[in-house]
Design a binder for these strands. Structure first.
Lengths: 331, 331
DNA sequence: TAAATTGCTGTAAACGATTACAAGAACGTT
DNA sequence: AACGTTCTTGTAATCGTTTACAGCAATTTA
């Protein structure tokens, strides 16, 4: 790879001059500029982002980080895609890591990102009191939370109105006549899970029903836990007539448990899932879901991050997006 | 962030000594070492990967790149996951980018990776004659191809026996009595697509059947093209009795087209898809697929890359993994 | 006891960029 | 003609590391 040195030598100027024509900042007389540009072209010069990042401070690295809990979850894939598109449009590269909902991995990758001097980080915190994230923020690193929020720290945040989504989903089930509605939740340390659960409880309460502990099961957002917990619920002496499952992967797992028991949906058991899936339409039966605008969450997070990088002092803002109940045939 | 300078000052030694205890390489007497280690701890020192990378050459950055065509495709998500796990196990970070099957984006990200001085790159080339990839390889950058191969360049490669997978899938359909088997292929420039198509044609030929052009449609690997092309095939005067779809997303699209026309699977139309899906079991009906070991492809690619980084001169190897036909109820 | 060897540590030069400052040329002003 | 500007370019410091080399003290050898 050609370096500034080599270009300078070929163009018979100093490296400072070459750097100036590259950064289009200072004045360089036309003749010199042309000579430099020719050398640049002839050597196919590409600046080293590494060297550049070492020298420049704050927001000029054109590199941002995204840490997602599970790359195999279509919700996060869509979110990543939205962020990626926004980043690419601004010529930022994305350092994408997968924490696997694992605090050690998150810590490792946060460390990597700091050590890589990224301009900023986007992530859904692993819990509402994610100390690792708080520590990174304390160093002055721009951080934007997506999907999930932090309880202690004030950050830029792009979230979805989870409470409302859950409330509507349960109300929908209630309207269909269901009274025993099972809940399969995920990790209770995360804010989205709590909001959704609150929406579930309030919707039941508004219908004059209490939420019954025996109909609630807590999992870990993974497909397998959805399958297991749905199984437990279905095998009860008096099983629920409907299931509300708090994320997409657990919903798929619940469906597997249902099919395994040869139950009919929605006659024997109705199902509503949180998060849409690109193939929800082709599931058996087409799945009723609360759709989250994941792509927009990612896109707006990147935009917020860009603004925070440009202007570190600005007060944090929260963008709240609306989910949408899509009634298909599982209810 | 504390730098070597600050640590050195606090421990009252030179930066060289600090660097030495960090790299455990040279001899440092116990007392000095202890003092340095204390300073390191007190200042919570973390080395700058950027500075380190600038100084060191070749394979010490502990950063590798992965460029995937579509992060929303579960096959690539699984592959990425396999690679990520292997990378994490060796304490490598992953720079993950999404090319969107777009040559411009791929070029952009290849440039970023070179400029970031990654230790190596893993990717499925966008076509068999992907010039951008060849150019990067020519600079000496370690490159491992996954899934898809390059026709001109010799690289390390982890691939799946696509020919065999397709051959078995079509044979399976033939065994079920189908004679008019439609094919929905993806981008014909990519090696996997060609191999799969060759498997399709050969399986038909082995049964004494020619492949008929009117039953073949070419798409772009995306869900929407699967839906459209399946629609075309289904709306023919004499439609095929079975569909073989060359990737997962197009299969999901094809399923949508089938459901839209209220056809029964497999009675009216049988379907086999290439690539498994975590929820293939819960589709309507459970989908017969050719399963690829995507996780292993990713994992082995990372291992190959590591070996190539360590030993640049070694001859390229090809690892060929076997796909597996999983007969469910769509055939 | 002087010389040679060994062991530990410090000095300084990279890596490849950016940028403050200096310097020289060209120009205008008085 | 002398001086002050302005414009363009070069010199050198810097970012945070690694590492070749030098230097010094302690130890071994003659």
């Amino acid at each position: 790879m050609a370096s500034l040195q080599e270009v300078a030598r070929r163009a018979k100027v100093s490296i400072a001059t070459v750097s100036r024509v590259l950064n289009k900042s200072d004045k360089v007389v036309a003749g010199t500029r042309a000579a430099v540009e020719r050398a640049l072209r002839e050597l196919d010069y590409r600046p080293s982002r590494v060297a550049r990042r070492l020298r420049k401070k704050d927001g000029r690295a054109h590199l941002v980080g995204l840490i997602i809990p599970d790359i195999q979850n279509p919700f996060y894939a869509e979110l990543a895609r939205g962020m990626e598109d926004a980043a690419y449009a601004s010529e930022y590269a994305l350092l994408l890591c997968n924490s696997d909902e694992n605090i050690e991995k998150e810590r490792f990758y946060l460390g990597v990102m700091q050590a890589e001097s990224v301009d900023g980080i986007v992530l859904p915190p692993l819990s509402e009191t994610d100390a690792a994230v708080e520590e990174v923020m304390a160093t002055g690193m721009p951080v934007v939370c997506v999907d999930r929020s932090l309880s202690r720290a004030r950050t830029d945040l792009v979230e979805v109105d989870n409470y409302r989504g859950a409330y509507e989903a349960v109300t929908h089930l209630l309207d269909k006549g269901h009274r025993r509605i099972g809940l399969i939740e995920g990790r209770s340390q995360v804010s989205t899970n709590r909001e959704r659960r609150r929406g579930y409880a309030d919707a039941l309460a508004a219908a004059g029903l209490g939420s019954r502990e025996e109909l609630i099961r807590a999992g870990d957002f993974r497909q397998e836990s959805g399958r297991l917990l749905a199984g437990e619920l279905l095998d009860m002496k008096r099983p629920p007539t409907a299931l509300f499952v708090l994320n997409n992967l657990m919903t798929v797992g619940a469906l597997a448990a249902i099919h395994q028991r040869q139950l009919r949906v929605p006659q024997d058991i109705a199902v509503v899932g949180f998060d849409d899936l690109p193939w929800a339409e082709s599931l058996d039966p087409p799945l009723t879901v609360v759709r989250q605008p994941a792509y927009d969450v990612g896109r707006q997070a990147m935009e917020l991050l860009l603004r925070r990088i440009m202007e570190a002092g600005r007060p944090p803002v929260t963008v709240r997006l609306l989910p949408q109940l899509i009634a298909r045939r599982s209810t």
